[in-house]
């Protein structure tokens, strides 16, 4: 079982340290996105990288459209990896929707985690006026899914439905776009719908594991107001504002990202900070 999970989720464990540090990718891409950041932690931590089922070098045949049509399916992947490696008090670093996936995992098994580091998180991408501004209207997100379709070249060869629903065509499934960021109409679309149409705001107050929110500048996917909403509703949370712009600071500004994570991890243990306080 353990071996199956490690293979299924393409789990890679490296580093000389003992404290486990799990990096969870965001939407659409595989663990490669963490390369620049994770390298800096291998001296002091046990670095754990993995892919969600369907992405990167995971076992595509294990993809269950029903399971992965909700974020809980991806959270189960995280829990499976933690269980397979027998992790306890791991530090979890999640990017984008990976943050929310980590939060959901921590609600089920808080003992697996000691800290959650959330890079550009959002509990809900859709606007819910007047109280909540997620940043998106429904049309923006359906437009995004259309654009994913337009950028998927693989579909010229095969119907999306035949990839997943046909067990005899596992050869097709394994030939799915060999790119680290996929736009394929089955797996990526299922992931997109699970990510962008979910609303996990009610889960935030239940979280018991301490967390750090890393808020980027000019991030259109997770704007500042969303980061602040997270901070307000997540118990034991801190928020730190980054100079890095955009939604992918771990790739565009790895140095700053590394620094922020190290500061948090090496800083004094958690102390209550005033509402909206900064570190």
């Amino acid at each position: 079982m353990t071996d199956n999970i490690l293979k299924r989720n393409n789990v890679n464990v490296m580093g000389k340290g003992k404290q486990p540090l799990v990096f969870a990718p965001g939407f659409g891409c595989d663990q490669t996105v963490w390369t620049s950041v994770s390298e800096s932690f291998t001296n002091d931590y046990q670095v754990i990288l993995f892919d969600y089922v369907g992405l990167g070098k995971s076992d595509v045949n294990a993809f269950d459209p029903e399971k992965y049509s909700a974020l809980s399916g991806y959270a189960q992947d995280v829990l499976d990896v933690c269980s397979a490696l027998d992790l306890k008090d791991a530090i979890f670093v999640g990017h984008s929707v990976g943050s929310m996936i980590g939060i959901l995992a921590s609600l089920q098994h808080p003992e697996y985690f000691s800290k959650l580091i959330l890079l550009g998180p959002s509990p809900c991408y859709l606007n819910d006026p007047p109280a909540y501004f997620g940043g998106f209207e429904k049309e923006d997100l359906t437009g995004l899914i259309d654009m994913m379709d337009r950028n998927y070249i693989g579909w010229a060869n095969v119907f999306a439905s035949t990839i997943i629903n046909n067990p005899e065509r596992s050869d097709v499934a394994s030939e799915l776009e060999d790119r680290f960021c996929s736009t394929d109409p089955v797996i990526a679309r299922t992931f997109a719908e699970a990510s962008f149409f979910s609303d996990n705001r009610k889960d935030l107050p239940k979280v018991t594991v301490p967390s750090l929110i890393l808020q980027c500048s000019e991030d259109i996917i997770a704007p500042e107001s969303v980061g602040e909403y997270m901070h307000e509703h997540l118990p034991n949370s801190k928020i730190a504002y980054m100079k890095a712009t955009g939604h992918c600071p771990h790739m565009s500004h790895p140095e700053e990202t590394i620094q922020m994570i190290q500061d948090y991890l090496e800083g004094t243990p958690y102390e209550a900070v005033p509402e909206g306080g900064l570190i």
């Binding site: 939407f27 659409g28 998106f136 997100l141 654009m147 996917i221 939604h247 790739m251 565009s252």
Partner: peptide
């Protein structure tokens, strides 16, 4: 366009960086 902005963040940026 709004959709292209998101797509740029989700796909263009990771691809060009990596």
């Amino acid at each position: 366009t709004a959709s292209a902005r998101v797509f740029l963040q989700l796909y263009f940026m990771p691809l060009i960086m990596v």
